[in-house]
Amino acid sequence: MKKIISTILLIALGSISLIGCSQNAITNNKKSNSDKLAIVNKEVMISAPDGLPAIAISKLAKEKPIIKDGYEVTYSVEATSESLSTTVMKEEPDIAIVPSNMAAIAYNKTSSYKIAGTVGMGSFYLVSTEDINDFNELVGKKVGNTGKSLTPDITVQTVLKEKGINVDDIDFNYVNSASELVPLLVTDKLNTAFVPEPALSALMEKNKDIKIIKSLNDGWKEVANSKQGYPQSTIIIKSDFAENNQEFVEAFLGQLSNSIDWANDSTNNAGEYAKEIGVTTDPNIINKSMERANLKFISVKDMIEDYNSYYQKLYNFDPKTVGGTLPDEGIYLVEE
């Protein structure tokens, strides 16, 4: 009888042990599944065009710091303005750095993006090998510029007109890009032009006679009564993404500001970082251009008046430059 009882007890204890192991296995399995779920990060796509805007994010794109736990960020550098425009109009990036007029077009055409801030003020400069001291001395001269009827041209013409200069008395020579402008100034086919950074630094390396006459951004400050000048590059964020990921957006903008400060302070490294993320400009030229690149992060709340003025002037020139309609206050990503 004792043997029977002992046997029953052993069986019972074995069963309890097995149940315990089974329960532990289930618990561990649940924990394992829970851990797997926890490491599935939310994907965030950030795009910028080749050039100064990409330099603004170069530290972030190369070092890939964690902006906020639970998010995986992918950075892309678009080779052309056309490819950048296409990806934005398809609403692919959650965050993008774009020309400021493209921010208005994206808002008017998609209703999906809002302006979070500026990452670069005007970086165009009037340069010449001739004895010129100001904009009014361009009358009667042949002057190079990029993008006829596009924002560089509109900005130049607006400043000149506001200063009472008849632009019809200036012989503008237009090319598609700054890279096409540089050889003309190097070979003296042109003596005077409006040239942006970093192309300006490349030009000054090749033609030691080139002198900087005046910053177009300074000219804009004078005619628009602006403290900062005109917003050349703008950071836009999808409205729904910003609303549903406020902590990430706030953290990212802080990191972006730090990245820009780093690029301005680390002129020996900025070029190499930019090269590693796909910027095509020579690293040494980038390093030399930082002094005049005018990269800076300014929150949209401190730029609304400047944007309104800028968009009004673009709209007055040609409504199509801002998407056909002057953008309303809803374009700005500000706390209500």
Rank of each mutant, 00 (worst) to 15 (best):
K2P: 00
I4M: 09
T7G: 11
T7Q: 10
G14E: 00
G14H: 02
I16Y: 13
L18G: 10
C21T: 10
C21S: 13
N28M: 13
S34K: 10
S34P: 03
D35R: 10
I39C: 03
N41R: 14
K42L: 11
V44Y: 05
S47T: 10
A48P: 00
I55Y: 06
A56S: 14
I57W: 09
K62F: 12
K64V: 12
P65T: 01
I66E: 14
I66D: 15
G70V: 04
E72W: 05
A79W: 01
E82F: 07
S83D: 13
K90H: 13
E91Q: 15
V98N: 07
V98P: 06
S100Q: 01
I105C: 00
K109R: 13
S111A: 12
Y113R: 02
K114Y: 01
S123F: 09
Y125H: 12
E130M: 12
F135T: 06
N136K: 15
E137F: 03
E137P: 00
G140T: 06
T146A: 08
K148S: 08
S149Y: 11
D153F: 05
I154V: 15
G164R: 04
N166L: 03
V167G: 00
I170D: 00
N173V: 10
S179F: 08
T187W: 08
T187S: 15
T187Q: 13
L190R: 00
L190P: 01
N191D: 13
A193R: 05
P198M: 05
E205I: 09
I210R: 00
K214A: 15
K221L: 06
E222N: 11
A224E: 08
S233H: 13
I235K: 02
I237L: 04
K238A: 02
D240C: 03
F241T: 04
F248E: 05
V249I: 11
E250S: 14
E250Q: 14
F252L: 12
L253P: 06
G254D: 12
D261L: 11
W262N: 04
A263G: 05
S266E: 14
T267F: 06
N269V: 02
A270D: 04
Y273G: 06
E276M: 07
I277G: 11
G278E: 08
V279L: 09
T281Q: 13
D282Y: 11
D282P: 07
K296R: 13
F297I: 11
I298G: 01
I298W: 10
D302R: 07
M303W: 04
I304Y: 02
I304L: 04
S309N: 14
Y310F: 12
F317C: 02
P319D: 10
K320T: 15
K320S: 15
G323M: 02
T325K: 13
T325W: 09
G330D: 14
Y332N: 01
V334Q: 11
E336D: 14
